[in-house]
Design a binder for these strands. Structure first.
Length: 213
DNA sequence: ACATTAATTGTGT
DNA sequence: ACACAATTAATGT
């Protein structure tokens, strides 16, 4: 397991810490679409993503789902961190966007390491900050951005994550992620297509224009 | 290769 | 938001 961890984390963690992780963490492979954490599940391990991407979303009282952000390799989800530390249940849902691999770290260890390894402390702290920022922009997008803009950044996010200009999913699924209706998404996508920033096929959306990195 | 069906997407009200 | 039309993909014969 160490061989897998080292290339990703050797610039972040000291070697001794990587050894510790290798000793105590459990490796888990997952497939696209797999539900990794659901709302209300108690958390006894902290996930650390190795490959692939995970979609973090929140659910409304009724049926509405709303995507908060995506996690990429080398990161963890700070919402889960909070839940782990407080020993509370998950407030979010984590679903695999692509297939991938993650390691699960027991809570006791993650707490123990906080006191021992500065690099670990740092990592947790940075993760918190990053996610907090993403949360803020998620809030902004809901509160202030038009659906059109939200959809656009959603597309950009997806293409970044899959490292491809091709996004493979139906309008229905997007609508679900953005907590909107399919018809609306279709209409906006149609506009994007007419603006020549997108190409539309059934089940596939291709970004043509600039990458707004 | 063609017909049938289901799923996805487009449009008007 | 809804209903329905049109298009595309999947499946059987």
């Amino acid at each position: 397991m160490k061989q897998i961890l080292t290339p990703l984390f050797n610039s972040v963690f000291e070697e001794k810490l990587i050894d510790e992780i290798a000793n105590f963490a459990i490796m888990h492979d997952f497939n696209e679409g797999e539900l990794i954490i659901d709302i209300g599940t108690p958390l006894n391990r902290m996930p650390l993503l190795i490959h692939g991407a995970i979609k973090i979303s929140r659910e409304d009282q009724k049926q509405g789902e709303l995507v908060l952000y995506f996690i990429e390799k080398g990161n963890t989800c700070s919402m889960t961190l909070t839940s782990c530390l407080n020993n509370t249940k998950s407030e979010i849902r984590a679903k695999a966007e692509t297939s991938g691999k993650l390691v699960l770290i027991p809570i006791e260890k993650m707490e123990e390491w906080l006191g021992i390894y500065p690099s670990w402390r740092n990592f947790i702290f940075i993760s918190y900050n990053n996610r907090l920022k993403e949360m803020l922009s998620a809030i902004d997008s809901i509160a202030f951005m038009s659906l059109e803009d939200r959809l656009w950044s959603y597309l950009i996010d997806k293409s970044k994550i899959n490292k491809s200009r091709e996004i493979h999913c139906t309008h229905q699924e997007i609508a679900f992620d953005l907590n909107s209706s399919r018809v609306v998404i279709s209409r906006i996508l149609k506009v994007f297509e007419q603006n020549n920033s997108i190409q539309l096929k059934q089940g596939v959306i291709t970004l043509k224009d600039k990458m707004t990195n």
